[in-house]
Structures are given as C-alpha cells and as structure tokens.
Design a protein around this nucleic acid. Sequence first.
DNA 1: CGCAGAATTGAATATTTTCAAGTGGTGTGG
DNA 2: CCACACCACTTGAAAATATTCAATTCTGCG
Lengths: 205, 205
Amino acid sequence: MSSLTRNASFEVSEGDHQIIYVACGVTKLVAHMSDSRDQVLAFHFVGDIFTVPAPDNYVYSVIALREARLVTFPSDDYLTEATTEPGILRHLLDNTILSLRRSREKVIALGSKTAAERLAVFLLNMAERIGTERDGLCAFDLPMSRRDISESLGLTIETVSRQLTKLRDDGVIETIGRSKVILRRPELLRERAGYSTRSCAISSS
Amino acid sequence: MSSLTRNASFEVSEGDHQIIYVACGVTKLVAHMSDSRDQVLAFHFVGDIFTVPAPDNYVYSVIALREARLVTFPSDDYLTEATTEPGILRHLLDNTILSLRRSREKVIALGSKTAAERLAVFLLNMAERIGTERDGLCAFDLPMSRRDISESLGLTIETVSRQLTKLRDDGVIETIGRSKVILRRPELLRERAGYSTRSCAISSS
DNA sequence: CGCAGAATTGAATATTTTCAAGTGGTGTGG
DNA sequence: CCACACCACTTGAAAATATTCAATTCTGCG
C-alpha cells in the first residue's frame, strides 16, 4: 500500500509489470516517450484494478491527479500465488478484459475520429464513470487538467479548449469554472461522438 | 472450428464476446463505424488467441486476410467451465495481457506519433512477428493490403504509400512487388519509430 | 486583492487528407 | 508464353484539420 500526493508518480522499475488497485483517489497511466511527449493511456478511479507494463519501448508511470492510495503487487509473484485461487484469477481476467475493451475504444477514437468526436467520446465516458445526477442532468467535476485531456486524446490543449468552447457555444454542455461540466444535451453529444450507426449500445446506468 | 475464405468475415452476434484461436491463416480484427470508416484493432497470426468484444458503440468482426481456420468459444460459457481449470484461466489471462500491451502501444502510436513514425513502428512489429532471415537481413511478406495498413495506423492509403516510398528512397527498406519487404537498415527504422530515449527495450527474439 | 499558473483566443504554419490522374503488378485468357 | 485488363498502388496538387506560436483572459489560491 503506497500513498501518492497530487502529481506524485509511481514509476515502474525494470523487471516485471505491476498490478494496481486504486484504494482512493484518481490516477492517470502515462507512457513517456520523451520530455514533452507523453501519452495518457487511461484514467483510473476508486476501485479500479489495472496493470502497468514493465518498461519496453516506453517508460510507464502512474501519476496521482489528486491525493491517492494505491495497493500494488509485482504481477508474477501475485499470479503464481493466485493460480491456486481460481476466483482471484477470474477477477483479474475480467478486469484485464475491461481494460482491453477501453484501450480498443481509445484506439478507435485516436485512429479514426476528429477532434470534435474525441471530445464528445471523452465527455460521455467521464459521464458514465463519474457523472452524478443534478437537476435531472448529468454533471461531474473533471479531475484532470486540459493538458491531461489533450495527452489522453492525442490533441493539443488548444484544440481541446476550442472544442469545449464550441460545445458550450452550441449549448451541448455547460461549464462552471475550470472543471465542472454539465451535460445539457447528452443526445447531441452522442450524435457528435461518431458511434456506429448500427450500434447496439445500452445506455442506462 | 470455422473456416474462413479470403475476405470472409466472422461477425460477432449480439450477446457475449468471443474467444478466438487462430489455427491457421492471418486475420484482422475490425471495428466498424460506418460504411467506409473502419478501424483495424489488430492483426492476428497462426497460434494467436484473442477476444472479440460483443457489439457496443461499434460492431466488431474478424476478417481473414487469406484462407484461415478459427476456433471460437462464446466467452462466458468457456470461462465458467475454465474456472475450475486454473491453468487454462492463467493462459487466457496471459494472452489478454499481451493483447492489452499491444493495444496500448497502438494507442501511443495513434495518439502521439507522426505518419513516418507509425510506419516505422508498423514495419518493426511485422518484422518481429513474421520476419525471417534472408541474406543476413530481415524480410517478410505483408499479408495485408495498403488499405488494411492505413486503417490500422489511422492514416489514408495515400499517406501510407508516400511514407513507404520515402523509406525506400532513403534506403531504409527495399520492396519487391506489392508485399515483399526487406529491412535494409533496421537501426534507422528504430530511430524513426520515436521510441522512448530512456528505453529498456530488449531486441532479439 | 493580487499574483501565478491554467485556460482561452487568434493568426500563421504544418501535416495529413482529399481529389484527381497515372503507373504497374498480378492474374487471366488467348 | 505473351498480351491484356483490372485493380491496387503511387504520385501530384489543392484543401482541410489540427498544431504552433503568441498574446490575452480567467480562476483559484495565498
């Protein structure tokens, strides 16, 4: 169990990949290419379980967006032990499949969506993960900066800012201060997300 | 066990995601957004095991690039049974973690690399997966079309073509016909891939 | 209240896409 | 075995989207 203050990073040393459980807080998983070239692979919230790769062609780190508490296991040790515990193994597999599905959705977004579509997808994902009802509308506090968002979406902070401005001007979202977001017209957001037309998505939750 | 002729697709019906084993051939895993907007999520070769998501915001399908034989399991059925077999579960977990690592590398490429860097990464990956030695150099036959490559890298076929031409003109690669590639200067390719400078990559294989 | 960093806005630039035309490989039929 | 035709690929020029650079405004915090 390790504690991370805001912006503190947990760098994965050489050797094996790690399994992380977010006991408290919000984190980003970052791949480091060079100074000033980082890619955010995922944001993680309380209760999330995920794996951090061992260094390969990139260096990975987990960075706290606010105060966070993490439980970390060196993966191999853990797995060897868990092999005798099918329940734990199964749980880990389910979480890995979830991470994979999210990673693939990110590939789709970064590979074939415009800036506007990426922002729409991002906001819908955040709504799903940390949104709460407020006057019959979905609202949330973005725990990450514009830079984090841009590094997650493969855009610049300027482009992110311009797209948010556009969404606000079009009455799709409302923003309060730097981080509060209210989805005024979620159906428009969904239209702008560029999802498959023959989609079978189940909204709800 | 199902057989797929070239370009035949295995569409995942509603319900649960599938586990696929490639017994023979080469396939691409495609996310379908709309007519003429597809994203290739991964290429799979003989012996690969991977999961195909159930339809969500997109429709997924497995398409054979040449004659292929696949073994498919509806995931839930299989997992319920496998829960009593830690070895199988562990094997599946390892494969899913591998898929996740590759998917994340793709996110890095699509999120923060130029067209030139993406092509370099792509060629290095192909070399690693299907490359064979030939006169002391690494060579391989690309089993996919330029369109497949472009849809995998989030570029247009024209950009892919131009980048390959540039690599050829610069003496980094040699091409024979439409599909044969020889890596003349793999070290240059690695430089152009934009990997982390403090990389700990182990080449070999 | 004022400051410092974050975010926004604007204009110029760059990379990639789009559209259009041309070339060449591969496979077929004579 | 060669000629031909089709389709994949290549190449070029114009257009679009996003980036870069620069200046300004906002916001949260001391």
